[in-house]
Design a protein around this nucleic acid. Sequence first.
DNA 1: TCAAAAGTGTTCACCATACACCCATGT
DNA 2: ACATGGGTGTATGGTGAACACTTTTGA
Lengths: 233, 233
Amino acid sequence: MLDQYKQQNPYLLALDSIIFGFDGESLKVLLVKRGVEEKTWSLMGGWLQPNEGLEQAAARILFDLTGLTNVYLEQLYAFGDPHRDPIVRTISVAYFSLVKIADYETKISEVFQARWFSIYDLPPLLFDHGDMVDLAIKRLRYKAAQHPLGFELLPEKFTIPQLKKLYDAIYNTEFDKRNFSRKILSTNLLVKLDEKQKGFSKRGAYFYQVDATKYQEINNAFLNFIPNSELAL
Amino acid sequence: MLDQYKQQNPYLLALDSIIFGFDGESLKVLLVKRGVEEKTWSLMGGWLQPNEGLEQAAARILFDLTGLTNVYLEQLYAFGDPHRDPIVRTISVAYFSLVKIADYETKISEVFQARWFSIYDLPPLLFDHGDMVDLAIKRLRYKAAQHPLGFELLPEKFTIPQLKKLYDAIYNTEFDKRNFSRKILSTNLLVKLDEKQKGFSKRGAYFYQVDATKYQEINNAFLNFIPNSELAL
DNA sequence: TCAAAAGTGTTCACCATACACCCATGT
DNA sequence: ACATGGGTGTATGGTGAACACTTTTGA
């Protein structure tokens, strides 16, 4: 009975994270120099430990390397080409993560050999990490079009113009500010605060915050393709 | 340099496939009885071999067990809970597959201990295979709402009423046949044939076929959320 | 001739888009 | 006073949803 297990080859299992950040102007990915190829930039990564689940491991590695915690983390794809790591065969499960760049910027830069790169100006990457980043960008665009996850990249309090700039950056386009504002506010997901942003523009823009309660409702609402259907089995 | 590899624990890597089929009435999943727990139904699965990529392995296993080839296959998710397999720690990469049930039905049933189960009437499943099926159903619904992949579950030639029944089954609802027909035909993805279906209804419905050339265009068109943007980096 | 499924058209409400002007304030 | 970015309203076209009748043909 156990024989069928013993006959099988085991493989190394790595986790790599595509970490997105937004600095107010452009969408960035966090890259490091590490290990085997010290001259090549690569994604944050590490090995699965015996007592961990995959997402748990990805979160641990993220924390170990950056001190980031409580961030948006979603499994992207499992990469398993036999020759993707030329030294030892390794399967890598890639995760993508959205972080509030401002909270951690200094910590990351000082403690680790890490840098934010614009997604439009990436250096050559280790192994298949370039493919991982490409896929992560596609996935982010795909998801952000329907799910309200842009907030994960902004501070707790943010202005509508900031949010618009983020979406402009994600889609490499320029949305109409009137339509954008109406669309975002029509979700009722944002709560307007009394406070205004100071220092950036003369007039100052109102801060908004995500309404955590309504967050859940919205997450389901985008499924409106399906009319009066019973989604539960 | 190699030390950092040698210190790491390797893990067994399995592939499990959720295979969907449609018999004209309801959406089905193909399950088998195998290996460790002969009394429990499970997904089709097998082990990764040293010279294979993940999708390649999933395709091989699918072929070995069912004789199915050239089917729609898409990576679903990597499952890696430390205790998901109670005997030996195993990471499983799940794939979901869409097959034309009629072409292979007899072959599957005779050669292997396998059975089609309605997604609304599944038996208890091995390990976390129930979670895998749940996720696969969600993913199928999510994708089918925007991508034209329903055809993968039907014969080469099919009628609009057949297609509608398929979507009814996927979403467990009843679409309006007028709206459904208009929507499907407006994609220009289907070519009407001169032939009519015989034997099922008195009047008979026209057969249609997928226009392979237009298939690609459509696959991009659903991204119309993003106005005049340059998607390429 | 009748039963059963196939096929088709119109109206309405809503949403996405395009587009232009006034407002608040720091300099 | 003026320059800079913030904030809002309207008109139009297209799309999704609701809804009912005629057509074909095998029994």
